[in-house]
């Protein structure tokens, strides 16, 4: 399990990447995150819904009521063009972050080997 502190800044990115594949709802998204990461990252319910709230407020996603199935009416989420743009920016940011952090992580390994 990954500490939620480390991954916090990228929860939104993870959700957006799944919505780019197609509209989806809460449970499906959290299940996909689990299966893609082989259960190494499980997003908590409250983390998921605070991300939805934040993304919707910023206009990156839109919600709508889905068809009723088995008496349940789910809320679906759709990514907006702004959301796609934001996702690309976050991907670039991550590439940069990765490069920067890797420098330090590698130096640590190097140092430790001496």
């Amino acid at each position: 399990m990954i500490s939620s502190d480390v991954i916090r800044g990228y929860n939104d990115t993870i959700i957006l990447s799944l919505l780019i594949e197609g509209d989806s709802y809460g449970y499906e998204i959290s299940r996909n995150i689990r299966s893609i990461t082989n259960e190494q990252y499980i997003m908590k319910e409250t983390t998921l819904y605070s991300a939805f709230t934040r993304l919707e407020k910023n206009g990156y996603i839109e919600s709508y009521y889905g068809e009723e199935t088995q008496g349940k009416r789910r809320t679906y989420y759709r990514i907006t063009p702004e959301g796609i743009k934001y996702y690309r920016e976050k991907c670039e940011e991550w590439e940069l972050t990765k490069k920067v952090i890797n420098k330090f992580v590698k130096e640590m390994v190097h140092y430790g080997n001496n």
């Binding site: 499980i42 908590k44 319910e45 409250t46 983390t47 819904y49 605070s50 709230t53 934040r54």
Partner: peptide
């Protein structure tokens, strides 16, 4: 796996 409600309320 529920998490912390305060996180959601803050948002």
């Amino acid at each position: 796996e529920f998490g912390n409600i305060d996180e959601l309320l803050d948002e």
